[in-house]
Amino acid sequence: MDINLTLIGQSITFFLFIWFTMKFVWPPIVNALAARRAQIADGLSAAEKAKHDEELSKHRIAELLRDAKAQAQEIIGQAEKRAAEIIDAAKTSAKTEAERIVLAANAEIEQNVHRAREQLRGQVASLAVAGASRVLKKEINAAANEDLLKDLVAQL
């Protein structure tokens, strides 16, 4: 083993290699590694956030759905109520109308009866007078027997 100038040459070479590595090799690689690490960390946290957001929106969707259902239920309820009301109102108005018609009819009937009776009464009175005059064979003074006739008519 002979030591010679090679020793110095090797040392110089070694230092040059270290210098080159330190200047041009190590920093870019380590920086790239650090940058990738940061990227991955960012990506992971973004994924985590997205997951969280998804969870939130799921909750929100469920809430909306529930609200919508409740609202629909309410609307249906209201519509049913309203329909019942309308039917009720229609029934009531139909009933009153019917009653009104019946009443009017009744009144007319009454009136007709009344009128017919009045007529009949008048006719009966004249008939009675005529009958009586035939019986008596004499003219009854209608005017003299006015009270009697009236009394008779009222009795009919």
């Binding site: 083993m1 030591i3 010679n4 090679t6 020793l7 110095i8 040459g9 090797q10 040392s11 070479t13 070694f14 230092f15």
Partner: peptide, 10 residues
């Protein structure tokens, strides 16, 4: 040994 000593001495 020149190479190894070269490095170790550096």
């Amino acid at each position: 040994p020149n190479a190894t000593f070269g490095m170790s001495l550096a």
